[in-house]
């Protein structure tokens, strides 16, 4: 029951490139990554693509499919209109290395600027902590992040305004939220979020939340509460007064 379909894949490197059409037979249950692998095995052995788990767990296979940022391994071809060519291109926000592979190393460097986890002293004499499931669950949402960087890809502060040197982007704001709201953490990142990581650049467009394959409520649950902490500390006159007293 294979149906033929056309895949319009971006080929090239940092010097430039363009779309190239490949046709592949689509069978029941196939995802975009399967089609890319078929093309690679039979027509274009040097086609560059990243993947690892093929099950939406590692965040390696991010790309823009028909203009939408998605994981190739979790995008079923049955959900796409195959009468038109399916375009597959690398994420735009990051410099391209080759074909569908981009240089995402900035994310790893930027992460290092966020202060690491620092636990409060243990609760029990044996050096362990006691935490309630409800407190764990709030943060577990953020810890589901698979670092696919699709949210970074759509954030206009990075994509259009190229503020990589000043702004850490939604993924790393989620990371900061996971640390700040961690029930055991005793570090303070509020001042960094304001001055170093410029959380203020985010104007809550929610684009990041809409593309997150892990359905993390990036804006409402992570960014807004962090912004509130910044506001509470720096802009709430009453609180400022109390701190001085």
């Amino acid at each position: 029951m294979a149906t033929p379909a056309t895949f319009r894949i971006w080929r090239g490197n940092s010097a430039g490139g363009g779309f190239q059409d490949y046709s592949a037979a689509v069978e029941e249950g196939m995802v975009v990554l399967d089609a890319v692998h078929h093309i690679q095995a039979q027509q274009a052995p040097d086609l560059a693509v990243r993947w690892n788990c093929k099950a939406g767990k590692c965040g390696s296979c991010s790309a823009e499919i028909n203009g939408m940022p998605k994981l190739m391994c979790m995008t079923r071809l049955s959900d796409i209109d195959l009468n038109e060519p399916v375009t597959i291109e690398p994420m735009h926000t990051f410099p391209v290395i080759r074909d569908l592979v981009t240089d995402v190393s900035w994310n790893f460097k930027a992460k290092k600027t966020i202060k690491q986890f620092k636990p409060r002293p243990p609760d029990a004499p044996d050096g362990t902590w006691r935490v309630q499931q409800a407190d764990v669950e709030r943060v577990q949402e953020f810890r589901k992040c698979i670092e696919c960087f699709l949210c970074q890809d759509v954030c206009h502060v990075l994509r259009e305004h190229h503020k990589q040197d000043e702004f850490i982007g939604p993924r790393l704001l989620v990371h900061a939220a996971a640390l700040e709201m961690h029930p055991l953490d005793a570090e303070d990142r509020v001042s960094d979020l304001r001055r170093l990581h410029n959380i203020g650049y985010c104007n809550i467009t929610t684009c990041c939340r809409q593309v997150c394959p892990e359905s993390i409520t990036i804006t409402e649950n992570a960014i807004i509460p962090l912004k509130e902490r910044v506001v509470d500390r720096y802009f709430d006159p009453l609180k400022r007064l109390f701190r001085i007293l």
Binding site: F117, P119, T128, Q133, V136, L179
Partner: peptide, 17 residues
């Protein structure tokens, strides 16, 4: 336990372990 001290958040028992 070392992993927990580095920030891992495991599911909990009723008494918080």
């Amino acid at each position: 336990r070392e992993l927990e001290a580095w920030g891992a958040l495991f599911d909990r028992t009723k008494d918080g372990k």
